[in-house]
Design a protein around this nucleic acid. Structure first.
Lengths: 223, 223
DNA sequence: CAACCTGGATTGTCTGACATTCTTGCAATC
DNA sequence: GATTGCAAGAATGTCAGACAATCCAGGTTG
């Protein structure tokens, strides 16, 4: 392996690198839902040893991005509509609260960051790069969660982000969904920028309702 | 699909066994907060190899029961009062919702289970076994979460249980806290048994408020 | 056709090893 | 005397290889 320029403060370990790559691969839809992951294959593809890979898999298991059944190994869980519903309900609980709190306490610097992330999503929305749409949308919400004043709320939400992104990827593929999503997110941003807690909660709730409906359509239309 | 009763004997792997034992050890307060865990020592004490132990540590890291810093290894995080506050706020969000949902949909069989767990806590409350108090209280809530009709809500809550138990252990050591906690939990149970969603939410909220106050006292009195 | 058996594939687990990084105590310097 | 620098020891990150237990598919047998 060639020595790569790495000025990063925290040295990324092989384990972390592996988790990152696998997470991205899964979110990109590289693996079929329900399919099994073969350790030896992944080792070869990623160029890491089995112990390192297995540690990475444990981390991904905790994120619920994969399932590990004893003696059967890791596999990509097939997410159903009922799970999607459950996730949207919990999202509502968490994100509405976060948006509300955020409105009354976000510092101006972070508010600008939030605005930038909205622009980034805007750009992605007009492209056809659905992965970029998913990632920038996730950024937008992660900034809100990071500034809600409750690190645990943020942490809990982060544990759902992977699966949220999965469903987001599907609904974004619907005609026009990205654009209307953009409008809803802009409403959220405006409310937060105005420091209007109530409006932020409402906008967030509205956004989730529509996202849920879109997700339902995208799931019905295929499975 | 027939209502699959869970007859599956889950073959506990070494990894799972290790996670279980370490989790219990941490919750029992066996390790000093802030102290580092030495892999080789744990291997010797648990009688497992380093790869298995390291996988177990990754799982515990995901539960936030330990922290793993690259090149420094695992350690017990020192929980602060500000984190406790954040956790209680999120608990309120989750548990109030769960108790409310539970009230309108728990099957009678599970209701009996809930009652039994309340009795178990009652017994523990009159003893001085604080670990038993913590475990039985956790059982009580886990039954509520398991019957709220939203598996994601349950999962998210389970991710907090470890830290909840940590703070619960401290507040339970306060004179009379276990008994008043019992009374509050009985209220929750009664509301759920009556199918009164609103009352269940209120009782749950009240319980959390008092638990929070107790936790604050227990933390002020020492650190 | 069903039940059984067998061989290959895959995972669970261990041992042992080595490079890298961190810690700590001591010495040297100002 | 305090700070800096360094070196030995400890601990972690990572790998390779091995073997038993388990699962799965396909063929065999009744």
């Amino acid at each position: 392996m060639p020595p790569e320029l790495n000025l990063r403060i925290s040295p990324r370990t092989v384990q972390q690198e592996t988790v990152g790559k696998l997470r991205l691969a899964i979110l990109s839809g590289l693996f079929e839902p329900g399919s099994r992951l073969i350790e030896s294959q992944l080792c070869a593809q990623l160029g890491v040893s089995r112990p390192s890979l297995r540690e990475a898999l444990r981390s991904l298991e905790a994120e619920r991005l994969i399932e590990i059944v004893p003696n059967r190994g890791p596999s990509i869980p097939a997410l159903s509509w009922s799970e999607a519903t459950a996730i949207y309900e919990v999202r509502e609980l968490l994100e509405v609260e976060a948006a509300g709190r955020c409105a009354s306490r976000i510092p101006t610097e972070q508010l600008h960051e939030l605005e930038r992330s909205l622009f980034a999503f805007e750009e992605a929305a007009s492209s056809n790069d659905s992965l970029a749409q998913v990632m920038t949308a996730a950024d937008f919400y992660s900034i809100i969660l990071a500034n809600c004043g409750n690190p645990i709320l943020e942490e809990v939400h982060r544990g759902l982000v992977a699966r949220i992104s999965f469903f987001r990827g599907r609904s974004m593929s619907l005609e026009g969904r990205a654009q209307s999503s953009l409008a809803e997110m802009r409403e959220i941003y405006e409310s937060i920028a105005a420091g209007d807690e109530k409006a932020a909660r409402k906008a967030s709730k509205r956004h989730l309702l529509k996202a849920k409906a879109a997700a339902k359509m995208s799931m019905n239309s295929e499975s």
